[in-house]
C-alpha cells in the first residue's frame, strides 16, 4: 500500500459518501444516472468475485464489501425507494449502457492476463469501469445546471482513478516485477474521459459559478 493508492481509495469512498448524502439529504436522484450506478454495481460484483476465496487484508475485504453494498444500495434507492424513484429522469438517462457491458465483456474475452473465469471477469470489470461514467456525463450535459453534490460526486469519482495512476507509476518504479498493463491503460482512458468535466469543474470553482457542461 502506498499513499497514492490510499488517497485513491479514500477519494473513491468519499465520492460514494457524497452521492449517498445527496440522495439521503435531498431524497432525490435528480442529475444522477441510474445506468452509471448499475454499471458500477456490475463492476464491483465482477471484480470482487474472489471476495471469499482470496483474503488480502482486513482493509481490502472491508472496502470490497463497502463498495458492493453501497453500489447495490444506491441502485435499490433509485429503482425502488418511492421518493427517490419519482425524481429519476429516465428521459434524460438514455445511454444504451448494455452496449458498454457487451463491448467490455467481449474485449475481456480477448484481452486478459490469464484465460480463467476470475481473470476474464476481472478484466471485464476493469474495462467496464473505464466507460461506466459515460451515461452520467451524458446526463450532466443534458440536464443543464448540475447541483453541487452531484458535481462533487463526479469529481471525486474521476479523481480516484487519477490517483491510482500515480500509484501504478510509484509501484512500477519501486517494485521490480510490477506490471498491471490492463489496469493502467484502462485507468488512463477512464481518467481521460473526465478531462472536459474536470475543465468545466475547475472553471466553475475558479469563477465561483454554477457548474455547467456545454450541451
Amino acid at each position: 500500500m502506498n499513499i497514492f493508492r490510499l488517497a485513491g481509495d479514500m477519494t473513491h469512498l468519499l465520492s460514494i459518501l457524497v452521492l449517498l448524502l445527496k440522495i439521503y439529504a435531498t431524497k432525490s436522484c435528480s442529475g444522477v444516472s441510474r445506468k452509471t450506478q448499475e454499471l458500477y454495481a456490475i463492476v464491483f460484483l465482477a471484480r470482487y468475485l474472489d471476495l471469499f476465496t482470496d483474503f488480502i487484508s482486513v482493509y481490502n475485504t472491508f472496502m470490497k464489501i463497502v463498495f458492493i453494498a453501497s453500489s447495490l444500495a444506491i441502485v435499490w434507492c433509485i429503482r425502488v425507494h418511492p421518493m427517490v424513484k419519482r425524481s429519476y429522469d429516465k428521459d434524460l438517462d438514455t445511454f444504451r449502457h448494455y452496449l458498454l457491458v457487451a463491448a467490455s465483456f467481449l474485449l475481456a474475452l480477448f484481452l486478459h492476463e490469464k484465460f480463467t473465469f476470475l481473470e476474464i471477469f476481472w478484466a471485464f470489470s476493469i474495462y467496464l469501469e473505464a466507460v461506466a461514467i459515460l451515461p452520467q456525463l451524458v446526463l450532466l450535459q443534458r440536464s443543464g445546471n448540475v447541483d453541487n453534490l452531484t458535481g462533487q460526486y463526479v469529481f471525486f469519482l474521476g479523481a480516484y482513478r487519477g490517483l491510482y495512476i500515480l500509484n501504478w507509476i510509484y509501484r512500477y518504479l519501486t517494485e521490480p516485477r510490477f506490471t498491471r498493463w490492463i489496469a493502467c491503460v484502462s485507468g488512463v482512458v477512464q481518467t481521460a474521459l473526465y478531462a472536459d468535466f474536470f475543465y468545466y469543474y475547475f472553471i466553475s470553482w475558479k469563477n465561483n459559478s454554477k457548474l455547467k457542461l456545454p450541451a
Binding site: R47, D50, I56, E119, F178
Partner: peptide
C-alpha cells in the same frame, strides 16, 4: 517471484 497475479488493489 511469479507475476503477482493476486489482485491486491481494489
Amino acid at each position: 517471484g511469479p507475476l503477482s497475479s493476486t489482485k491486491d488493489e481494489l
